[in-house]
């Protein structure tokens, strides 16, 4: 695995229009979750961010109120183009899902009982779960060979998925533990 190699270079979007279109396509592909397309587009396709930048931004946004990727659009828009960038990125992210959710609500009231509709809803949920796992695997590559990091990660999975402890408790606690090991050079 390439986890220890130098990270590929990343360059921020050159124009607000590019920023807007990027977030528009994240919104367009956000069936089943916004995080997987956000990673795919910002890190892999458009290379605006390195994986480490992405992790840091998302982690910061997770600790703040508000939708995670919505917050990320504010943070990144601000970093690259100031207030105008934050507004453009935020509007780009919400534009298409907003239209779709209203359209879906109008359709759903008429077709809710149709088996095809519930099948589609279940299918979207299932694919969303898969996409989340795939994103976690990609992001986790740099820590795959560090036993302490893997143990810390596994602890978080168990606490949140099985124990259903709020991420608001798990995340700060795990970061403090992580800081200790990172200071001891074990991460």
């Amino acid at each position: 695995m390439s986890g220890t190699l130098a990270e590929p270079a990343a360059a921020p979007p050159r124009t607000r229009w590019e920023l807007f279109v990027g977030f528009l396509s994240i919104g367009a592909r956000s069936f089943g979750g916004v995080l997987p397309p956000a990673y795919d587009i910002m890190v892999e396709k458009r290379r605006w961010l390195t994986p480490a930048d992405f992790t840091e931004t998302i982690a910061l946004c997770q600790l703040l109120p508000g939708p995670n990727i919505g917050n990320a659009s504010i943070v990144l828009g601000k970093r690259w183009f100031g207030l105008g960038g934050a507004i453009v990125a935020f509007l780009g992210l919400f534009a298409l899902p907003y239209v779709w959710v209203l359209a879906l609500a109008l359709l759903y009231t008429h077709w809710a009982a149709h088996p095809l509709v519930s099948a589609v809803v279940t299918g979207v949920g299932a694919s969303g779960a898969g996409l989340f796992m795939a994103t976690a695997v990609k992001l986790g590559q740099p820590i795959a060979r560090k036993p302490v990091a893997v143990a810390l990660m596994a602890g978080c999975v168990l606490a949140v998925a099985i124990g259903r402890v709020s991420p608001l408790i798990v995340m700060p606690a795990a970061v403090i533990v992580g800081m200790f090991f990172s200071w001891r050079r074990m991460l």
């Binding site: 979750g33 995080l35 480490a52 992790t55 840091e56 998302i58 982690a59 997770q62 989340f132 796992m133 994103t135 976690a136 992001l139 986790g140 740099p142 820590i143 990091a149 893997v150 810390l152 990660m153 596994a154 602890g155 978080c156 999975v157 606490a159 949140v160 998925a161 991420p167 798990v170 995340m171 795990a174 970061v175 403090i176 533990v177 992580g178 800081m179 090991f181 990172s182 991460l187």
Partner: peptide, 13 residues
């Protein structure tokens, strides 16, 4: 320190 908990949270998600 952030990476392991974040990857864990995404798995859990």
């Amino acid at each position: 320190a952030l990476l392991p908990p974040l990857v864990g949270l995404i798995f859990a998600g």
